[in-house]
């Protein structure tokens, strides 16, 4: 069993898996990794199930200790990992011997980093998921952020692929292979422009506001969190003064509040909402949104719904190919 202990928890560190998808009707949010792509890549690099539980770190300022020999992988733009002074590369499996001190150092690129362990982190399932939901106080480790002294272990049942990967890098000192999963190949080059398709109440907004929404720069507000990203900039005005009756919303939905500000809903968002919605960020760009920091620029460009569907299917196909390539490397 592989175990770590938390020496410094960082500002918002939680256990997150692929999310809690079966209880939306009872208003239980999906939760799960904000940057789903990074979490999946870290897991795939270890031969884990891709939605296994990882630790989501927000920014750096965290540290932990290898209580046992570890085989880990990380991905995301919030921090870089340094193990006993050695910077370890992301998006690939890394062997770390027991006793090593691992620190997160600042990565100006983004906000969240996903730390995966061979076997996936073991915490109790709550409503069929290991994801932490802070507002509800359940999931993850006791429904809360990690704190000093917490010990977390990987699952004991390693896949045969995981076992092969571990055998390929295990040794007396920190080591990693040359191969890695290039996450950047799955991301667009422009990381600040989010592709959106019109949402239910798109036509309720004034033509000027719609033009501004799809052309101007907006900024990430400081009140952003796992529930949503506050977007400041030009106010969005309605041409139709209808009230929306509460209806289902989901991560990616952009709501416009009474004062004309936009909120982009993220992993821990409510399942229903009553604010009119101007756009829906395409699913594949939510991983980019998860990496935004307060004051970062964010802008929106329109794509068709057809294209949004195709982008999603395309990304899933590439991930399937990557999984197969890792598998073939070790199990052929």
């Amino acid at each position: 069993m592989m175990t770590i202990s938390i020496l410094k928890p960082g500002i918002l560190t939680t256990v997150q898996d692929g999310g809690r998808k079966n209880y939306l009707a009872q208003a239980v949010p999906i939760s799960g990794a904000m940057d789903n792509l990074s979490a999946r890549i870290a897991n795939i690099a270890l031969g884990n199930e891709e939605d296994s539980a990882t630790i989501e770190f927000t920014y750096a300022a965290a540290a932990f200790k290898a209580e046992t020999d570890l085989v880990i992988a990380y991905a995301g733009d919030g921090a870089m990992l340094v193990a006993d002074g050695v910077q370890i590369p992301s998006e690939r499996p890394v062997f770390i011997p027991a006793g090593t001190l691992i620190k997160l150092t600042n990565n100006p690129e983004g906000a969240t980093t996903y730390f995966a362990i061979a076997g996936g982190f073991e915490v109790p399932d709550v409503l069929k998921s290991k994801s932490t939901y802070l507002l509800g106080g359940f999931g993850g480790l006791e429904g809360r952020c990690l704190k000093i002294g917490d010990r977390l272990s990987g699952g004991e049942n390693l896949s045969s692929l995981s076992q092969k990967i571990i055998a390929s890098i295990k040794g007396p000192k920190i080591s990693w292979p040359a191969w890695f999963i290039p996450r950047s190949s799955l991301l667009p080059s422009d990381k600040k422009t989010m592709r959106v398709f019109p949402a239910g109440e798109f036509t309720w907004f004034s033509p000027d506001s719609i033009i501004n929404f799809l052309s101007k720069d907006f900024f990430v507000g400081i009140n952003s969190n796992r529930m949503g990203i506050q977007i400041s900039g030009d106010k969005i005005s309605k041409r139709k003064q209808d009230e929306l009756l509460s209806t289902a919303v989901c991560p990616g939905t952009i709501q416009v509040t009474g004062n004309g500000e936009m909120i982009l809903l993220m992993a821990d968002c409510q399942t229903t909402g009553g604010y009119p919605r101007i756009g829906q960020v395409t699913a594949v760009d939510l991983s980019l949104c998860a990496q935004l920091k307060p004051n970062d620029t964010i802008c929106f460009t329109e794509i068709s719904f057809d294209e949004a569907e195709m982008l999603y299917i395309q990304q899933e196909k590439i991930l399937q190919k990557i999984k197969l390539a890792v598998k073939n490397k070790f199990l052929s």
């Binding site: 009707a25 509460s246 209806t247 399942t271 229903t272 569907e309 999603y312 299917i313």
Partner: peptide
């Protein structure tokens, strides 16, 4: 699964 709103029913699926 489904999520009911006041006048709506939203239906979630695996694409």
């Amino acid at each position: 699964g489904c999520v009911a709103g006041y006048t709506t029913l939203s239906i979630f699926y695996n694409l």
